[in-house]
Amino acid sequence: MGIFNNIKNIFNKNKDQMTVDEQIIYDQANKYKQGMEKSRNSMMSRLKALFESYDVINDDLFDELEEIFIMADIGVNTVLDIIEKLKADVRMRNLQNMNEFQQIIIDKMFEIYVKDEIVNTNLNINEDGLTILLFVGVNGVGKTTSIGKIAYKLKLEGKKVMMAAGDTFRAGAIDQLKVWAERVGCECITKTEGSDPAAVMYEAIQAAKKNNIDVLLCDTAGRLQTKVNLMKELEKVHRVISREVPGSPHDTLLVIDATTGQNGLNQAKSFTEATAVSGIVLTKLDGTAKGGIVLAIRNELGLPIKFVTLGEKITDIEYFDIEQYIYGLFSDMFE
């Protein structure tokens, strides 16, 4: 199948022989590789050991494979799904060859994500006016930091950006966003702590319209998806935004921490109900956690991942690319 042939070919070239596009892919792949080095190591060493210790494809091998996937926090249902499909494939093709088997594993993971659709990981940018991005998620996943990084990225792309400090609850949250606005070099609309977040959004949208802003990034307070009142509050924020700018928010991004386990699915369900989530930002992928839960979210709920953050620097953010992600997890297998 050779999904990675493209990436692999680029890596085999000298950097000065590459086209501009190829260089971009090269740089991106490298970032994923470095950022996900820690995530990859533990998973890879097990996968490698696994393939070294088996010469036949049998049930024990599948059991161990299942464990490796579960270790990556890919949801239990999704893992069972992948394993079933793998078993069927192996049976159908009467597969014996370990190398082919490895390739099929990757193909299956790829299929789970792509699902015969064209997955749109780009932001839904409104080219003729204001684009509004709403950031939601549970406490401590990195919403504010992600806004800082995405704002910076958009600014580098030539957009005029602005932030709205909608987390009026947590102590220090407004100041935290202000610091990021300074780093990015953009304006940040704030009200005092404890004020209505919907009111912050209203004011920010007015300011954005007045100043011909391209993209307004709206922060919200972290909340557990089980808190009914807080979810209602979020619905209101969403409602006010779409009332002020019809068709907005153009993207509602659910921020998920890569260390999150199965609860990520519940988060995705509940936040989607409240605010029509359109994509995922996967944060803290530079740790040892693999963030596999996003594959389950994609598999079970259909939500695409739009960004991954891979470090603490303002530039440590990338548009999500499933090839790169899986490559980041498995690349040792191909080198």
């Binding site: 533990s42 579960i70 270790m71 990556a72 926090d73 549970v138 401590g140 921490d257 260390t259 999150t260 386990g261 199965q262 609860n263 990520g264 740790g287 040892t288 956690a289 693999k290 839960i293």
Partner: peptide, 15 residues
């Protein structure tokens, strides 16, 4: 430790 942590909780705590 975040109670929502997945499989990685053990690595984090161990380390």
């Amino acid at each position: 430790v975040d109670a929502m942590t997945g499989q990685d909780a053990v690595n984090v705590a161990n380390s």
